[in-house]
Design a protein around this nucleic acid. Sequence first.
DNA 1: GATGAATGAGGATTCATTCAT
DNA 2: AATGAATGAATCCTCATTCAT
Lengths: 217, 217, 217, 217
Amino acid sequence: MAPRTVSRTHEARAKIGENKRTRTRAALIQVALQVISERGFDAPTIDDFIAAADVARGTFYNYFKSRDELLIAAAGHVADTVDAEILPLFALTHDPAQRVAIAIRKFIEMSIRHPDQGGLLVRMIPLSGGAVSDEMRRGVLYDLESGQKLGRFKWRSLQAALALSMGTITMAIRAAISEPTPENFPELIAAMVLQGLGMPAREAQRVAALPLPEPVA
Amino acid sequence: MAPRTVSRTHEARAKIGENKRTRTRAALIQVALQVISERGFDAPTIDDFIAAADVARGTFYNYFKSRDELLIAAAGHVADTVDAEILPLFALTHDPAQRVAIAIRKFIEMSIRHPDQGGLLVRMIPLSGGAVSDEMRRGVLYDLESGQKLGRFKWRSLQAALALSMGTITMAIRAAISEPTPENFPELIAAMVLQGLGMPAREAQRVAALPLPEPVA
Amino acid sequence: MAPRTVSRTHEARAKIGENKRTRTRAALIQVALQVISERGFDAPTIDDFIAAADVARGTFYNYFKSRDELLIAAAGHVADTVDAEILPLFALTHDPAQRVAIAIRKFIEMSIRHPDQGGLLVRMIPLSGGAVSDEMRRGVLYDLESGQKLGRFKWRSLQAALALSMGTITMAIRAAISEPTPENFPELIAAMVLQGLGMPAREAQRVAALPLPEPVA
Amino acid sequence: MAPRTVSRTHEARAKIGENKRTRTRAALIQVALQVISERGFDAPTIDDFIAAADVARGTFYNYFKSRDELLIAAAGHVADTVDAEILPLFALTHDPAQRVAIAIRKFIEMSIRHPDQGGLLVRMIPLSGGAVSDEMRRGVLYDLESGQKLGRFKWRSLQAALALSMGTITMAIRAAISEPTPENFPELIAAMVLQGLGMPAREAQRVAALPLPEPVA
DNA sequence: GATGAATGAGGATTCATTCAT
DNA sequence: AATGAATGAATCCTCATTCAT
């Protein structure tokens, strides 16, 4: 079985290389989230990142062409994390009101659990043409429109409805990161947004308080 | 006109100088608003400011001790503008719902008329420590609480109510600056926020649509 | 005369500034020629140049965007120097053979007198798309063609004639810089090129040896 | 074909390895010639070489201890090529004029056929310390002097004669690489050089046009 | 042997601020 | 007051070379 051995070796080596590369990259991204949460978004230099990750200057550039590229990658990682939490829940219901509530609650919950990631998310929304937020935005847009068609929402301007939703989420995340918030803060925010979108208060509060399966990770 | 020139008093000269000084300073601030609104707080360099204002490097430092000082002055200018526009209207009513609606409508209107100032505003609000946002925040806080006491609002968490208000305003200004918006956008936003705060839809829309005295400038 | 004083002051200041700027720029170029002659073309870094010129790092970048830009400017300076020497002499004759001889002799003489400058010239010819050499090349081209028409030259391929002229000049400058050469080296080179271009040996040597007005500087 | 594979002797395997080793080494040198011919000696990085050769970084260092070693090997390869083409022809005649003509024609022809090698040659000649140019230089020197003794040449300065020969060859190769040239370009150049060295035009052109055995490779 | 991740010294570049004119 | 040349600390970026797998 010599050939197999040979080929396995090749594969194995490739895989090890692959793993190491992936690990270093992941470490840099992880470290970036930490450092940003500690020292803010603008202050940290490439030097700070590599010092925290304990890699050489050149190693950084083996993975990212610039500071910005690292930050974007980090934001992408956060987006993936959020997606992984929200998408399974979206499979459970097609009620736009519920979906909006789920997204809002999950985003805020995640930001409370991982303030670094929430912070980065919020900082990236204005920046980068919204690479991160775009996906979120598209999802929200879709639910706002179908909710209107189904009579769940009663907004009079899509632009305004979008501003309400995105603005409130953003500011709520910001609050959740920097101040202590009540345990049901995510639900409270979700309910207010639904009310703002035209749902009766009682129904909004009911939908916003529906039990949610716990995240696995 | 030589005689007139000669006969100019010291005072007159001082005043002319004063005027010029004021004008250059104002020009620098104006230019700063533009540049910041386009490129954010951190990106622009002093070179960008002096190039846009077409003054020499040294001149800049005759007016501002540092880059930060210009930024603060620019923010202060926006605060003054806001004060001049909104405070007089606040004298007209003590209904918290009306006051919140007035503030929201005025902020957005002003941002449409002076996108540079709106842009700076939007950049400052998240910093939440900026003079503008603090004052605004206090005002909003006060109205939210008294509105609750008077039964006009029915929020369940002050933090959440604040996030809804501030977040929606911020995002609405952002939209108003960068996209065309319907003429009644300010009112629409105001109505949605009031609904979110627990007012019945009909009443929210009525209050948000009350006629407003035109701004002077 | 206050106004006049004021305006003279303005002019004077502008002029002083202008002078200073010009002087610093010239100093950097001068220093570049020196440093290159001492340490070669490739070795010196920007640090070496600014140390030799005794200016700050930032000052360098006030004048040149990159190391290459300095080198190109230095080469341009050399080209100007040569032009200043050759052009007046070109006014004295329209005989293409004489003009070719003058150009060759002057380039080599200059390189013997200022080896730094000659060296830079030779190094820049392959580089920079020939910004430096292009002018020279055009001049030579013109004289080669008109010399042919007038029956002074008898080459059979313009390309080949150009290769002979430019190649020989380049290599002669190189030799003149790095080895001791006989006093009449410039004339010898000129004569050989004219022979190569098809002039009879005797006539070539006569034209190449015609007395030349001494340079002023 | 398993049996055959199995029955392969150690020697055979060694030879295959040897071949592969030789091939990879040759590929690196070949690629180096290309890259150097295009971008010069200094510009290309090891990354450029390994990317063009499509080998891993470590593989490069299995064959060459340093970047310089590759450059030297590449130059050696060109030297070998030149030797193989020109030396056999030198056995055919002892007339210095013919030998100079042969060398010139062969160098240019070879550069047209193998532009990469010509490019490297041209880059090396000015360095004059390169193995190729030294050998060539010695050969040319010898022929120039014996040609003078035999009355075939009539130069007045060996230095100048050398500059004419080497400079013209260099520039002619450069032209032949980068522009289309007439078919008899090598002969034209050879004739001009011989004329420049003092041979009568008619005789120079005759010698330069003598038929040459075709190269084998 | 082949691989490619990691290294870090060497150099390039920016930009807020000072200061003589 | 206005000017703009000069400064240099802080930071970025490249690339030849090493070495564990």
